[in-house]
Amino acid sequence: AVSDRLIGRKGVVMEAISPQNSGLVKVDGETWRATSGTVLDVGEEVSVKAIEGVKLVVEKLE
């Protein structure tokens, strides 16, 4: 699937994400809805860990 190529890629949070609410991330110039187990603020760099349906699962870049 086209989304599989995104796993491991870096992105930037465009709309804040929390465990309760999905947000938006931009990866390779495309905007995706994303979820995370932690709070991520706009502008934070993330990496794509998995894909669930049409949402990316991301975590903060260390």
Rank of each mutant, 00 (worst) to 15 (best):
V12G: 02
G29N: 08
G23Y: 12
I17G: 02
A16E: 07
S18D: 09
V58Y: 00
L61Q: 09
V48S: 01
G37N: 11
K26M: 14
D41L: 14
V57E: 04
G37E: 09
G29D: 08
V39T: 14
A34H: 01
P19T: 05
V58L: 03
G53T: 04
L40K: 02
G43K: 12
E30V: 06
E44V: 12
L40I: 12
V25G: 00
I17F: 03
G8V: 02
A1D: 15
G23T: 02
R9Y: 13
S36C: 06
G43C: 06
T31W: 08
R9M: 15
V42D: 05
V2C: 08
N21T: 14
L40G: 01
V46A: 05
T35D: 07
G43M: 09
Q20A: 13
E30L: 10
I17P: 02
G37F: 15
R33A: 09
E52T: 10
R33P: 15
S22G: 09
T35L: 15
E45G: 10
A34G: 04
D41C: 06
A1E: 15
I17A: 02
I51T: 06
K26I: 09
G11C: 04
V25S: 01
V57I: 10
G53D: 08
D41S: 13
V46H: 01
R9A: 07
V48F: 01
G29E: 06
I7M: 09
T31R: 05
G53L: 04
E15F: 15
K60C: 04
K49R: 14
A16G: 10
E52Y: 14
L24C: 07
T31M: 11
L56K: 00
L40Q: 05
K55N: 12
D41H: 13
A1V: 14
M14T: 12
R9K: 11
L6K: 03
L40N: 03
V42R: 12
V57C: 05
V46M: 03
K10N: 08
Q20Y: 15
V27Q: 01
L56H: 01
G11Y: 01
T31I: 14
L56A: 03
R9T: 05
E59M: 15
A1Q: 12
I17S: 02
V13E: 00
V25K: 00
A50S: 08
V13H: 00
G23V: 02
T31S: 09
E44C: 06
A50N: 07
E52A: 09
K26Y: 14
G43T: 07
V57T: 05
I17E: 02
V57Q: 05
V12W: 15
L6A: 03
G29Q: 10
D4A: 09
E15Q: 14
K26V: 09
P19C: 06
K26H: 10
A50I: 03
G37V: 14
T31Y: 09
I51M: 08
S22F: 15
E52C: 08
G23P: 01
E59A: 12
G23I: 02
E45K: 10
S22V: 11
E30W: 04
V39H: 14
A50L: 05
W32T: 02
A1N: 07
G23W: 04
I7V: 12
W32V: 03
Q20T: 13
D41M: 15
D41A: 13
V42F: 07
A50Q: 11
I51E: 02
G8T: 03
A34S: 04
V2M: 10
D28P: 01
I51N: 04
D41N: 11
R9F: 13
S22H: 12
E52Q: 13
G8E: 03
K26E: 11
V13D: 00
A16F: 14
V54M: 09
M14R: 06
G8A: 04
R33Q: 12
E62R: 14
V2H: 07
G8H: 04
D41P: 10
E30Y: 12
S47L: 13
R5S: 14
D28V: 09
L24K: 10
V54E: 15
V58R: 00
R9H: 07
T38H: 08
E30G: 08
T38P: 02
T35S: 10
A1P: 11
V27H: 01
M14D: 04
A1K: 04
I7Q: 03
G23F: 03
S3K: 06
T35E: 08
V2A: 11
Q20F: 15
E15I: 11
D4E: 13
L61R: 07
L61G: 06
V39W: 11
L56C: 04
S36T: 03
I51H: 05
S18P: 04
G53I: 04
E44L: 11
S22P: 10
L40C: 05
K55S: 13
S47C: 06
G8Q: 03
I17H: 02
T38Y: 15
V54Y: 15
V48N: 01
K26C: 09
G43V: 02
T38C: 05
E45M: 13
V46E: 00
V13S: 02
V46L: 02
K55Q: 13
D28E: 14
R5F: 15
K60T: 05
G8L: 03
T35C: 06
V2Q: 07
S36K: 01
P19N: 05
G43L: 08
S18M: 08
R5E: 12
A50T: 05
E62C: 08
V48E: 00
S47G: 08
K26W: 10
E52W: 13
V58H: 00
T31D: 11
A34C: 04
L6C: 03
Q20R: 13
V42N: 05
R5D: 09
E45R: 10
V48H: 00
A34Q: 00
G37C: 08
R9C: 05
E62I: 14
A1H: 07
V57F: 13
G37K: 11
G23A: 02
K10V: 09
G11Q: 00
T31P: 05
V12S: 09
D41Q: 15
G11V: 03
V57G: 02
T38D: 12
V27G: 01
V25Y: 00
G8K: 04
T31C: 05
A34V: 02
S3M: 10
E15R: 13
A34E: 00
A1C: 09
V57A: 05
V42H: 05
S36N: 02
V13R: 00
E62L: 14
E52R: 09
V46Y: 01
R33V: 08
V25I: 06
E15D: 07
L24S: 12
V12C: 06
S47A: 10
D4K: 05
G53N: 06
V27L: 06
V42A: 07
V13Y: 00
E59N: 07
N21D: 07
N21V: 14
L6M: 07
E44G: 04
N21P: 02
K10H: 10
E45N: 12
G11M: 02
L56R: 00
V2S: 10
I7E: 03
V54D: 14
V58C: 05
V27K: 01
I7F: 05
D4P: 05
D41G: 13
L40P: 01
S3E: 13
G37M: 14
I7A: 03
K55L: 15
A16T: 12
E45D: 09
G29T: 06
I51Q: 05
E59C: 09
A16M: 14
D4T: 14
D28Q: 11
S47K: 12
A16D: 06
V58W: 00
L6G: 02
A50V: 04
V13Q: 00
A16I: 11
L61E: 07
S22C: 07
G23Q: 01
W32D: 00
E30C: 07
E59Q: 11
D41F: 15
G29P: 04
T38S: 12
I51C: 05
V2F: 04
K49L: 15
D28I: 08
D28C: 07
V54K: 07
A1T: 12
K10R: 13
V48M: 02
P19V: 06
I7R: 05
A34N: 01
K26R: 12
L56P: 01
M14Y: 13
R5N: 13
E44Y: 06
D28R: 05
G23L: 03
V54T: 14
L61V: 12
D28W: 07
L61A: 11
S3N: 11
T31H: 08
V48L: 02
D4F: 03
I17M: 06
G29W: 09
E52P: 02
V39S: 12
E52L: 12
K10I: 09
L6R: 04
E62P: 07
K55T: 15
G43Y: 07
S18E: 06
T38N: 08
V46S: 02
A50E: 06
R9D: 03
E52S: 10
M14A: 08
V39F: 14
E62G: 09
G53W: 04
E44N: 09
D28A: 12
E15G: 09
V42S: 06
T38F: 14
R33T: 10
S36V: 01
K55Y: 15
Q20C: 10
